[in-house]
Design a protein around this nucleic acid. Structure first.
Lengths: 153, 153
DNA sequence: CTGCTGGCTTGTGGTTTCCATAGCCAGAGA
DNA sequence: TCTCTGGCTATGGAAACCACAAGCCAGCAG
């Protein structure tokens, strides 16, 4: 059974995927503002606790709690490191799972830059060629379908 | 000033974009579970109040409040319609702004399908060619940079 | 030993989100 | 006119989220 996105409404009595829907599940993991901001910073390269606090503007308590959750959820890893003459500290690094969230974070930023009022315009660029980067939806045959041309099965 | 994503940590004292960051702004609009679930349903083609309630599993009170927010934020529009022999009702339809959120919603679903435990595997397909659809990050020169090859300026 | 700093943890309180329940209202059917 | 139904609105309470503040602990500097 398949449904076209944004299709006609009379599509029968489709049953809700409920809380097993992957979108819902994702929201239960990174569905808070603090979690997304921390993942944004992790993708920006931040790895130290204090930098997370300063750059997100969240309080240390929230940062500590959320980082613990994100490590627990497998999006970040906590690795000890030591600078010479310093005590052992912990750096937070992206896991493969966390890295896979990049398209979502970029897509959220892309929407905000275009539609949210008061947002600072930022552009992401490919380092090697300098061209701006964006998220696109495409099928494996390299078509770029509109919403109405996508079905879920 | 540009920063490479997931780059080395010693990138100097970059100042936080604060609450004007587009990602943050977006989270303030659709950063709740209910908002994302409703946008998911809107992208799936749902337009009637009752269908939103049944398919998201949220209560009618939450659905009413969130739909009002989403209309207010310009992601949905509320249009009267009338089926023959029925009273006038209101259908919720995607605006262009709401349609632009599709990459983000799809990317969230993509992450959940791959990484979230207990998620039902769903695939999105292009109607015309039947191939599965995914979100990709690419620059205008059609490169597909990894996280480390993206900079923000 | 005392103080200081980075990285947390704990506690308090306000706001938001959500669920559950109940009620309201317009219009169609009887 | 009475009732029923779809689409809301209102109220109450639990939980989550967050800011603010304080405290804790390890390891340096003095």
């Amino acid at each position: 059974m398949a449904f076209a996105l944004a299709g006609i409404m009379n599509r029968g009595n489709r049953k809700s995927p409920g809380d097993r829907c992957p979108i819902d599940r994702t929201m239960q993991v990174v569905g808070t503002r603090s979690a997304i901001l921390l993942m944004r910073e992790a993708l920006f390269g931040t790895s130290r606790f204090d930098d997370f606090v300063v750059r997100t503007g969240l309080t240390d308590a929230v940062v500590a709690a959320r980082l613990r959750d994100l490590v627990q959820a497998g999006l970040l890893s906590k690795e000890p490191y030591r600078e010479p003459g310093q005590r052992t500290r912990h750096a937070y690094a992206l896991t493969d799972s966390g890295r896979d969230l990049m398209p979502a974070v970029l897509a959220l930023g892309q929407w905000g830059a275009k539609h949210a009022r008061g947002a600072v315009g930022r552009t992401f660029r490919h380092v090697e060629c300098g061209e701006p980067v964006r998220t696109v939806v495409e099928c494996t045959a390299h078509h770029r379908p509109a919403v109405e041309q996508i079905e879920v099965s």
